[in-house]
């Protein structure tokens, strides 16, 4: 089982490392649809200032993007493991 999980985590980190280079920067389906409708303007409203908006670290270019997604991936791993362990006990 350990092998399978290490393999899974390695794939996740591989995707995280490649995403900034391979990912399309085109707008996603919802953004593309929104661009067709003038009623969908006014996107500047921000409810919360995220530390790494758009999967990037300010002033760090591509390296920052790789780092941001890696940090996010590891954060997810730790968070879901923590949540799973806590829920297992309850």
């Amino acid at each position: 089982m350990r092998k399978t999980l290490v393999f899974g985590i390695a794939i996740a980190l591989l995707i995280a490392g490649l995403a900034p280079f391979l990912a399309s920067s085109n707008p996603d389906g919802l953004e593309s649809a929104a661009e067709k409708f003038s009623s969908a303007e006014g996107m500047d409203y921000v409810a919360f200032n995220s530390p790494m908006p758009d999967y990037a670290i300010e002033g760090m270019g591509r390296t920052g993007e790789v780092l941001a997604i890696m940090i996010g991936t590891l954060l997810m791993l730790v968070m879901a493991y923590g949540a799973g362990m806590i829920l297992k006990k309850t």
């Binding site: 996740a12 399309s24 996010g72």
Partner: peptide, 24 residues
Amino acid sequence: LATLAAGIFAIQAMNLPIPWGTSG
């Protein structure tokens, strides 16, 4: 659960190109 969370997060950060100048 933890491995899937990490994998889903990473793959969601990778937008694949589709036609019409759009991605997903």
